[in-house]
Design a protein around this nucleic acid. Structure first.
Lengths: 220, 220
DNA sequence: GGATGCGGAATTGTATACAGATCATCACGG
DNA sequence: CCGTGATGATCTGTATACAATTCCGCATCC
């Protein structure tokens, strides 16, 4: 049972990942709890979890805040992605069964047509994450997968923005990574994954840098 | 202000990292809150944080449990360490200042004599963690450092046990890793770090495997 | 003997109350 | 005009209460 706390947790997590709180905004507990139809107790429990996951910040005596995305943070989180995902794909090359690999090929061909202009950006990012997580899961290491997931949630917002311009090349980059996995070429797989993430890191950082100078600074 | 919740958090975190709860044990909230001199509300907030950090488990309607260390989990967490720390040392080689590196050399020579038989195992593990974290910090990436810290806390208990037998070689292994960093040889530094962690992974897993068959299974 | 069901006790989930801290406003003084 | 300090309003931190659920022991039945 206990839908209430989990429900609140999911809702606030979504709100945080989707940046429905203004960056560095102090979150009013009473107000938000009313809005979500629960009391402050389960809300605070949920926000404590999210703080530990890095989606919110907490200052004793002051409350919970939206964790703002600075250019530095984006660089750091993409570096974490790089560390985790290159390691994951290397393990995947060694451990994945042929059927698992076939499932990814299937996924790629099933979704190929959706990597097109008409598709909403959120959907593209979802597909992108799903591809990366499928590979991560083939590492057979749930802890690795979990950390990658958490990292995604913290940069999802900037990825929505960054993805707009580069929809077309995403799918071919994925195919390129996948083929190294399919050929069981660990070094190539790792290198391609690293390059892929580094590219996105540069783009995302640039975008946040622009947004930061346009949006965040004038607010103070 | 607000020492109470943070105090409770620190205490429970220590208890969890030190495995003062029996593996997979259900944690009685009222009892523990009395023991810690606080009420259930701040205790539950602390335990929610620790659940997100992987030190505890939570089942809705049943409560919080100690996260048991299985051989599989140990393998997975050491793999995570490997991913994060090899990445960190590579960044450290590129970014560390000469003075930072000198500080580590100083630390190693200061603590050399303590890597000896008489020193308590807990102290050795602390020194070991400190060395690794000093290197991680030179990556300049606080997110990476934080994830490494969290991973340490989850395997600290098994490291206490594993460290007993290998005190002597730990220091020379650290020196070996450090020298690659000092020489700015990224590849060697990464390789040596990887080997170091893999070695400990194998040992720790074996130890947990033994403990698991001796200790955990008969409990059910 | 093992599975099943049924209380009663224990435990968790959540709301609420209240004390204490923080914040915002405004008046005052430099 | 800007800094400073007092004061009331607001918000957070924590204890407590109570409802809902789970757990446990025992009797019953197959």
């Amino acid at each position: 049972m206990s839908t209430s706390v989990d429900l609140v947790y999911e809702q606030v997590r979504q709100m945080a990942a989707n940046f429905e709180f203004k960056p560095a905004e102090r979150i009013n507990e009473s107000e938000l709890s009313k809005q979500l139809g629960a009391s402050r107790t389960p809300l605070r429990e949920a926000m404590n979890r999210l703080t530990a996951e890095g989606l919110l910040m907490f200052e004793p005596g002051r409350g919970f805040f939206c964790q703002p995305l600075t250019p530095e943070l984006v660089v750091h989180l993409y570096e974490v992605r790089e560390a985790l995902e290159t390691s994951a794909i290397r393990a995947a090359v060694e451990r994945a069964g042929d059927d698992d690999i076939a499932a990814i090929r299937q996924f790629l061909s099933d979704t190929a047509e959706r990597y097109a202009d008409g598709t909403p950006t959120k959907e593209i990012v979802r597909l992108d994450e799903e591809f990366h997580l499928m590979i991560a899961q083939l590492s057979g290491n749930p802890e690795l997968v979990n950390m990658i997931k958490l990292t995604y949630e913290r940069i999802r917002y900037v990825r929505w923005i960054a993805m707009r311009e580069r929809i077309d090349i995403t799918h071919s980059a994925h195919l390129h990574i996948f083929e190294a996995l399919e050929n069981r070429d660990a070094q190539a797989a790792e290198d391609r994954m690293r390059t892929h993430i580094k590219t996105h890191n540069a783009e995302a950082t640039e975008i946040v840098g622009k947004a930061y100078s346009n949006l965040y600074v004038p607010q103070h």
